[in-house]
Amino acid sequence: MAVTPDDVRHVAGLARLGIPEDALARYVEQLNGILSHMEVLQRVKGEAEATPPDAGMALREDRVAPVPLAIARERFAPRMRDGFFLVPRLATHEDAGEEP
């Protein structure tokens, strides 16, 4: 299951990491190096006995009680106008190459 430069390009794209072409080979080599140590897992047989059914999670009461912000959004947002966060224009929902 060797990682190829195309794999790294694909994965970097999914993760929105701008990786210069000249750094690609290093990441390919390092990922292959790391993943070679993972192969040992494929040889493991057998599964742990099913853990007893957990109690599950505690839920929150449906109450309007947000954790307050000690600093206004405008002061930490990189770009804000009229209360909106601003990003470069997307013509439609499709432009980011993803859909909700």
């Binding site: 929150r60 449906d62 109450r63 309007v64 009680a65 947000p66 954790v67 912000l69 209360g83």
Partner: peptide, 27 residues
Amino acid sequence: RTRSKAFCGCSATFGDAPNQNTCPVCL
């Protein structure tokens, strides 16, 4: 139809000023 959001205590109502109903969790 809940009063607050799924995972935080922000109001789930519509029509408020933009980003008014946001908190550390939903931001």
